[in-house]
């Protein structure tokens, strides 16, 4: 019995050992699979969490869409939400309009103006005409006022003085009044070689575009006139242009053309002639072989010195 028990005990022990060894073997062999299984379980768990999140997001979006649809169906609600955005954009446009659309607007306006130039002129012409008319009337009023002042001095000391001058010089008081209203001024002086028409010297209050060409053209006009009327001895003496008069004075081998604005009468002409005659004898050489910079600059400098502040009254 005890033998049989011993055998039975021994058999159980062996079974236990076998089982232990089998488990150990299994553990060793399935180690990698078990790890993969654990990873898979972990991954599955994460996926489940993601799906739950997505599900929540979809629910929220669905809610948002329902709200938007409700807002669109309800204009007042929609307007209250959209208006602030539009207002903000409008303000931005107002602020940056020049930068964003300035060029396009400028080009469009330019094209439109060019395309309808005639229409514009037609519309503006009467307006400009009125402006010019108003300006002329204003200037005329000033002129009348000045003449009036002159007449207003009648029998004053000034008047008696003018009357005395009139008696001596023979110049009328009316002419004196007009002269006082429109000051006489030298605008330009050209000193021109008679035969060639080349410029020997030049003075101008405001620079003319091409004094050389003007000198040549003035000479050509003189030539034309003397040729047309077949008179060698006669000379052109004045040329009138608007409120300017060109006085032409002839000297030995040159002549001068003086542009005078304002009242330019015989007395002015005489005064000019005396001054230019004196100037010519002192500053313009009679024997000129060549017109170069030094000659031109010298004559021009002297012209400026004498005629810049020359008093013609």
């Amino acid at each position: 019995m005890s033998y049989q028990n011993n055998i039975a005990n021994t058999g159980r022990q062996e079974d236990v050992v076998d089982k232990y060894l089998l488990d150990k073997l299994q553990s060793i062999l399935l180690q990698d699979e078990r790890k993969q299984l654990q990873d898979l379980v972990s991954h599955l768990h994460n996926l489940r969490l993601d799906v739950e999140h997505l599900s929540r997001d979809v629910t929220e979006i669905k809610g948002g869409v329902f709200t938007a649809v409700d807002s669109i169906n309800n204009p007042s609600q929609f307007e209250s939400k959209v208006s602030p955005l539009i207002n903000m954009r409008v303000q931005q446009l107002k602020k940056n309009f020049q930068q964003e659309f300035g060029y396009e607007v400028k080009e469009t306006v330019k094209e439109e103006l060019e395309a309808s130039r005639d229409e514009f002129i037609e519309v503006l012409y009467p307006i400009i005409g009125k402006l010019v008319q108003r300006y002329v009337r204003y200037q005329f009023d000033i002129f009348l006022e000045n003449v009036q002042k002159g007449i207003g001095n009648t029998f004053s000391w000034k008047w008696w003085k003018q009357a005395l001058t009139t008696f001596i010089t023979g110049e009328s008081m009316a002419a004196k009044s007009v002269k006082a209203a429109m000051p006489t001024q030298i605008e330009e002086v050209f000193v021109i070689q008679t035969n060639s028409g080349l410029l020997l010297g030049y003075y101008s209050r405001s620079n003319t575009t091409d004094p050389d060409l003007i000198a040549a053209m003035l000479t050509a006009i003189q030539n034309f006139v003397s040729d047309a009327f077949k008179k060698d001895s006669g000379n052109l003496q004045t040329i009138d242009h608007e409120n300017q008069r060109i006085f032409l004075h002839n000297f030995y081998k040159h002549y001068t053309a003086t542009v005078v604005s304002g009242i330019a009468d015989t007395a002015v002409n005489e005064k000019l002639y005396l001054a230019l005659s004196d100037f010519s004898s002192k500053n313009v050489p009679t024997a000129i072989t060549e017109i170069d910079d030094s000659l031109f600059n010298g004559v021009s400098r002297h012209l400026r010195e004498i005629f810049e502040d020359f008093d013609l009254t």
Partner: peptide, 23 residues
């Protein structure tokens, strides 16, 4: 200063004053 004179059949018909002082 170039004076471009209107053409004539012959030079004798050009106004003499235009020739004066030519270089």
């Amino acid at each position: 200063m170039i004076w471009d004179i209107g053409g004539e059949q012959n030079q004798a018909r050009v106004p003499e004053t235009y020739f004066l002082g030519s270089g």
